[in-house]
Amino acid sequence: MLDEYYRLAWSRKPEFMGWEREWDAPEYTELASTDYSFQNYNDALRRLDDYQRLSDKAVRLYNELPENYRPAFFELIGYQALASYQMNRKFLMAQLNRELLAEGKVEQANWAARQSELAYDSIASLNHRYNTQLDGKWNHMMTLAPGWVAKYQNMPEVTYTKGKGETPVDLSLRPEQDKLERCALVDLTRYHIKSASGHTLRLVKGLGYDWNIIQLGEATEALADPTSPSAPQIEYELPQIDADSVTLHVYSLPVFPIYKGRGTRFGVSVDGQPVQVTNNVPVEYSKQWKDHVLQNGVKATFTFSIDRERKSHTLTLSCGDPGVMIQRIIIDWCGLKETYVGPDIRILH
């Protein structure tokens, strides 16, 4: 349960689901729709489904526990699972309300608005339950008081059209959305170490959007030239690509260089072409830095030419500044649809 709780919060913490930053430019000061998509790759639907399963499991375990164990379980795990689900539901249902209203689906939009309001009320109820347990042992620990530099605790704006009734929306996963066309996901677990050159290249479980990351060297190891043929390299096999070029979206973890003078360089190549190098060193508290923190990732984009006659291709990751961690790689040849941080790896399975 804890793994799932942290995995879901990795891409966006519940308190960041309002997509606002009160301390930033005016366009970020109000609660807004998220970047999760209800139309593509089950992006928003899968997030709701994952959180609901986590919440349901917490309820089942709570009910199975002896009476004297229940307060501790609720304080440590149950509240977090249930409240995180309701916080996500609050914002995603408000977004769905706006989207359905724009499509003229008024009755369904009304239902989504009501669900968002129920989620808001549920959070208040969960807070009261937490604070009054064991004669108020943890009173005031959970609250919906106004945030210092955030508004996520507020109810997002929704539109309810009176006199139109409500029609429930089927929020179950839609298999047709999981089809990848003219794009592909790289399964980070299926790698081949081409050359380590004294560096630690490894798969680390329990980090990243898909709970697996590739670490290109330990941070304290020697610098490498990512453009050199002798650089530490990891390879992946790619499918046949029916195009003259391909775009790679590579998400890494947002880390600072270990000390001044170092960077976060790593290189990418396809089919042995010249290595393209990226280096992300944002200024702390800049908009770029904040964006990276909120989505817990940094996206670098690369474009390579493709020999469409080849039946398979090779993607190479090269270590530069050791310690860089790669968490998702998406291959696109004009078919990738818009989502928050790309399709979930579970689509492949």
Rank of each mutant, 00 (worst) to 15 (best):
G297S: 11
W19R: 07
Y85S: 02
N296K: 08
H128G: 03
I330S: 01
H249E: 10
A231S: 07
A109F: 06
D210F: 06
S55I: 06
V283T: 14
M87P: 01
A300K: 01
K151H: 06
Q86H: 09
F73L: 07
A94P: 00
T227A: 09
D135W: 08
P229L: 06
R53E: 12
T132M: 11
Q39A: 15
A102T: 12
E237D: 13
V106D: 13
E176S: 11
H313P: 09
V281Q: 09
H292S: 10
D43Q: 01
P343H: 13
E64K: 13
A219T: 10
S122D: 15
N139I: 02
M17C: 13
A83I: 02
V298G: 12
Y259F: 08
G217S: 04
D43L: 01
A145M: 10
G208N: 12
E27C: 12
L134I: 12
Y152C: 03
D210G: 07
L144H: 15
N296Y: 02
Y251L: 10
V246F: 04
R308V: 01
Q177W: 08
E338M: 12
L100G: 09
Q177N: 04
S195C: 06
H192N: 12
W138P: 01
S55P: 01
Y36F: 10
S195M: 04
P168C: 07
Y85G: 06
Q133D: 10
P257F: 09
V270F: 00
H192T: 07
S55T: 05
E30L: 08
P239R: 01
R308G: 07
W333R: 04
F38R: 08
Q133P: 08
W111Y: 14
N63A: 13
Y160P: 02
G267F: 03
Q273P: 01
W10D: 10
